[in-house]
Design a protein around this nucleic acid. Structure first.
Length: 814
DNA sequence: GACTGTTTAAAGAACA
DNA sequence: TGTTCTTTAAACAGTC
């Protein structure tokens, strides 16, 4: 009979669950109500101690209600649920239409009992934690420890943990309870290594930014209740610190569990285990303010929302990188920054990291700055010329210098399209959100309210937290929440797009100016960047925006710590000029002036040396002037000189810059989409790279090739000269550059690779190189004909092959 | 073995 | 509906 009925009714998953659970709908509603109440009451408390408890509770609730909610499905979903859970008390209708998974049944969590138990456990845990804290140091700052990345992360995780745990909750939780302390010896793996390895300058991660957090988060936490969960969590973090269930997870387990864990807590028990192991540990010495400075990047103030940022990975990366004075960070640092600022991203998850890597390698704007291995991994940089791409804290490919050029060359038409496109993008993001964006004021620098970040800011960051309060967290289905955030503060508003001409020009000019001058040195502020931007934006955006959001200065610095933010008020005008001027002074406001001050352009930082120096080489990028690399930045001891600054673009419009650094694909493709080739074509329709290759461009194919070729490139890059070379090469007329190139390269002496005699290096390219040379010769003779023709031919090849036809060919050439 | 970096492929969302 | 872009997965190679 029952069977019959079931069929009749579509048996909703919920029903199933209920049946399994032995509950009726009524019960469910009742429970949900209770839960709600519970939560409600809790919220109040929660704010204080929201930490894990609330999270768990929420989750549990969520689990109960949503039960299956398909946690297993998408990690993101689960997360969101969790995060949102608090906010979104299950509607009276428990119903989750969602497909309940049978498996879920596992979760007997539903009963309030479970919840209560958890709660009690947590309470216990908290107590323990408190004790610990007491022991350590309650004070926030001291908490620094807490703040150490680890701690920070942990705390964050904790929040999340529950989600994971939930499933297994029982086990996990238990473990958690016990967690407390145990430390895992290894936890750090990751960080550690690189901590140690990396620059000394950068202190260890352990120390990580306690400050940041402390200041920001903590403060905010109190301040901003908004996000409660999130923020709270952050704040709590301090509290929670003690536990680091995840630590291990992050560091270690990431791989395996990564995705699953989140998504399905249940599913991967392994994770939980990890948690058990976890050890809070960390923490090395607490970082003091000094440490802050040491950090390679600045963190935006403010509570960080757990919500998924509305930003694309490229945008996130851009923010992170720009938050560093040098505008360059290592992958690890990127991860750190992202995980801190956008807690949504967990270290334990591999997916987003993979995506980050993917974006880095595929996106032109992200330039690779190779370093000595000994020194550390490569740095990922954003050159000044590409700052526009990150203006609003978002990411717009169109503004990528290379792309621009290409577009210009290719088709003015397209340009329009692009522009429109840009519009599109924005819309896209906003789309959901708010329409309103404001516009950009392009022109005038208005005031900048935004000041918030005064100075240096990056692109807008984290608006969320604050926003949240305003907006109900409810995220729509899955990720959308961020939209809201964004919406509210349209990036545009915050960072008004620079007027193409003006801003960009400014930037460049400024940058150049700056660069040369000292800007770079100045601390954080990277010269270039967006100073212009911010100002403008600010102008456009009323203070309001500023208030709410944190801004990043393109310069790279994040807004100055907390302080700055609020204070900035309108006063802050970020005019470029101002900034610059101020640069010296401005930034400082921030807190301790970092080393930036280091003005000495060449602060030789060992690190630098390490980095590139040795090899350095980097590359000069083609077009953009090396970004400013800032040179010295405080934290990172960058050595300006070494910076591989990119050779200034050839004249400007030149062709696409190829950054030696870039991956071949990216360069060629310019766009990096996986289907790069396709994408290129899409964009360009025509032959993508062609432009690059054209002699007209002045780019030497040879150079080009070399650049493409990674290895060689490095070397080249190494020498600053190399850059020059490029330039020169670039300058070179269409004629067969190659020859020129080689010589220019310099110096044989300098670049081993290049030495004519040795050309060995070329070998890789040999075939091509040889041909090139010959061609060059020919070209010399009748360059017009042959060279071009040849090039053409190449082009053809290139075009053909880029991806599609024969990669092989392509490869050959490069 | 872990992490990094590159590349490819595919799915989904947004936009014209 | 087609295009474009973003995101996610995965494989592979290189380095430590």
């Amino acid at each position: 009979m029952a069977d019959v009925e079931q069929p009749a009714k579509p048996i909703s998953p919920i029903s199933n669950l209920l049946q399994k659970i032995g509950l009726t709908r009524d019960d469910l509603s009742r429970h949900s109500d209770q839960m709600r109440q519970f939560l409600t009451t809790q919220d109040a408390k929660t704010l204080r101690v929201f930490s894990a408890e609330s999270a768990d509770a929420q989750q549990s609730i969520a689990s109960v209600l949503g039960k299956s909610r398909s946690c297993s499905h998408s990690s993101s979903n689960s997360r969101q649920n969790t995060s949102t859970a608090s906010q979104t008390p299950p509607p009276s209708t428990p119903v989750k239409s969602e497909p309940v998974e049978p498996a879920i049944s596992l979760r007997h969590m539903d009963s309030m009992e479970m919840i209560l138990e958890r709660r009690s456990r947590k309470i216990k845990r908290d107590k323990r934690g408190k004790k610990d804290k007491d022991r350590n140091a309650p004070s926030p700052s001291p908490a620094s420890t807490a703040f150490s990345l680890d701690a920070f992360m942990q705390s964050r995780d904790l929040r999340r943990v529950p989600s994971l745990d939930q499933s297994d909750s029982s086990t996990n939780i238990a473990s958690l309870d016990e967690l407390p302390l145990p430390v895992t010896p290894q936890h750090r793996k990751y960080y550690r290594d690189y901590d140690t390895v990396e620059h000394p300058s950068r202190l260890k991660r352990g120390s990580y930014t306690p400050r940041d957090q402390s200041p920001t988060p903590t403060r905010h936490s109190s301040c901003s209740i908004f996000d409660q969960p999130h923020t709270a969590s952050v704040a709590d973090t301090s509290n929670a610190n003690f536990i680091t269930p995840r630590r291990n997870a992050y560091y270690k387990s990431p791989l395996p569990s990564s995705s699953p864990p989140q998504s399905s807590p249940f599913a991967t028990p392994s994770k939980p285990i990890v948690n058990l192991v976890s050890s809070p540990g960390p923490m090395g010495p607490l970082p003091d303010e000094d440490d802050y400075e040491n950090l390679p990047y600045t963190l935006p103030p403010g509570p960080y929302s757990m919500k998924k940022p509305d930003l694309s990975y490229a945008a996130l990366i851009g923010q992170a990188i720009l938050s560093s004075p040098d505008h360059r960070l290592t992958l690890q640092e990127l991860y750190d920054w992202i995980t801190i600022v956008y807690p949504y991203y967990n270290r334990s998850e591999m997916t987003w990291m993979n995506s980050i890597r993917h974006v880095l390698s595929t996106t032109i704007c992200f330039r690779k700055v190779p370093r000595d291995r000994s020194v550390g991994r490569t740095l990922w940089a954003i050159w000044d010329c590409d700052l526009e791409c990150f203006t609003d804290g978002g990411f717009r490919k169109e503004f990528c210098a290379e792309i621009k050029e290409v577009n210009k060359k290719t088709a003015p038409k397209k340009r329009a399209a692009e522009e429109s496109a840009s519009g599109r993008k924005t819309k896209r993001q906003k789309k959901g959100a708010a329409p309103a964006p404001v516009e950009p004021p392009t022109s005038s620098p208005v005031q900048e309210t935004t000041p918030a970040f005064s100075g240096s800011a990056l692109p807008t960051l984290v608006p969320y937290s604050q926003l949240l309060p305003l907006f109900p967290p409810r995220s729509s289905a899955h990720h959308q929440p961020y939209y809201q955030n964004c919406v509210q503060l349209p990036a545009d508003v915050i960072f008004p797009p620079l007027p193409p001409s003006s801003s960009y020009a400014r930037t460049s000019s400024s940058s150049s100016a700056v660069k040369s001058s000292d800007v770079a040195q100045t601390s954080p502020i990277p010269p270039s960047s967006l100073p212009g931007l911010s100002p403008s934006k600010s102008s456009s955006s009323p203070q309001l925006s500023s208030e709410d959001h944190l801004f990043f200065n393109l310069d790279g610095g994040m807004s100055p710590r907390i302080e700055s933010t609020p204070p900035l008020e309108s006063g802050i005008t970020l005019l470029d000029t101002d900034r610059r001027n101020s640069k010296a002074s401005l930034p400082p406001p921030k807190t301790p002036p970092k080393k930036s001050i280091g003005l000495p352009p060449v602060p030789v930082s060992p690190t630098l040396d390490r980095r590139g120096k040795s090899k350095k080489a980097k590359p000069p990028a083609k077009g953009c002037p090396p970004p400013m690399l800032p040179t010295s930045t405080s934290h990172r001891p960058m050595t300006p000189p070494p910076r591989p600054s990119t050779p200034p673009r050839r004249g400007g419009s030149n062709t696409v810059q190829l950054s030696p650094i870039r991956t071949p694909l990216s360069h060629k493709g310019l766009h990096m989409s996986p289907s790069a080739s396709l994408a290129h074509y899409k964009f360009n329709l025509d032959p993508p790279p062609s432009a690059t290759f054209h002699p007209d461009d002045g780019i030497n194919p040879a150079v080009f090739d070399t650049e493409n070729i990674r290895t060689p490139s490095c070397k080249r890059g190494t020498h600053a000269h190399g850059h020059h070379h490029k330039d020169t090469s670039i300058l070179f007329p269409p004629v067969t550059p190659k020859k020129l190139v080689f010589p220019t390269h310099s110096s044989s002496a300098e670049s081993p690779f290049r030495t004519p005699g040795s050309k060995s290096i070329f070998d890789p390219h040999d075939p091509g190189a040889i041909l090139d040379e010959e061609l060059a010769r020919l070209g010399a003779k009748g360059m017009q004909e042959s060279p071009i023709g040849l090039f053409e031919g190449r082009r053809g090849l290139l075009y053909e092959s880029p991806n599609m036809p024969s990669p092989g060919k392509w490869a050959r050439w490069f």
